[in-house]
């Protein structure tokens, strides 16, 4: 039951950590299966990235993914384990998979974390906002890149 509440809290009512509606999305370039350049022209902070990944109201990652986070009890199995993600993918590949994984697989279950077009019936508090800001995406990319066994 506790876990159910976590899902509700995480997916439903949380409004903190939302990207600003005013800020337009930064342009980016897809090369092959990657976005090679940082969305912010700066390196992300892996510490902040870790906090986003493990925060169910912000990153939402562990609802579907599992990973080496012993303190996080209720993890998901709908998506690949995040363990060793940095050894399996380059930063550019991780960046595109977060920004808009549907460019690689139209049927993907992975939500687009940095796309606001082509979405349907978005609830008002989330309209015209990406799931994460460009800075948050870079923080998560920087953190995932450190995940090597």
């Amino acid at each position: 039951m506790a876990a159910r509440w976590l899902v509700i809290l995480a997916l439903g009512v949380a409004c903190r950590g939302l990207a600003s509606a005013q800020e337009p999305l930064r342009p980016f370039t897809v090369q092959g299966d990657a976005i090679v350049e940082s969305l912010t022209d700066a390196k992300g902070d892996p510490e902040r990235g870790r906090a986003i990944v493990t925060n169910r109201q912000v990153g939402l990652c562990l609802l579907c993914h599992s990973g080496p986070f012993p303190a996080e009890k209720f993890q998901g199995t709908l998506a690949p384990d995040l363990r060793n993600a940095g050894a399996r993918w380059s930063e550019g590949q991780l960046r595109l998979r977060m920004v808009d994984a549907s460019r690689l697989n139209a049927d993907t279950i992975m939500p687009p974390y940095y796309r606001i077009v082509g979405l349907h019936r978005v609830a008002p508090p989330f309209r015209d906002r990406p799931v994460l800001t460009a800075e948050q995406i870079e923080d998560v990319v920087a953190f995932l890149a450190t995940m090597r066994d």
């Binding site: 342009p27 980016f28 370039t29 897809v30 092959g32 808009d100 460019r103 049927d107 993907t108 979405l119």
Partner: peptide, 16 residues
Amino acid sequence: LRTTFLAAAVAIAAPA
């Protein structure tokens, strides 16, 4: 392959 963000703006998510 190079696509820009603007090009993505017209892409429509296919039904899964």
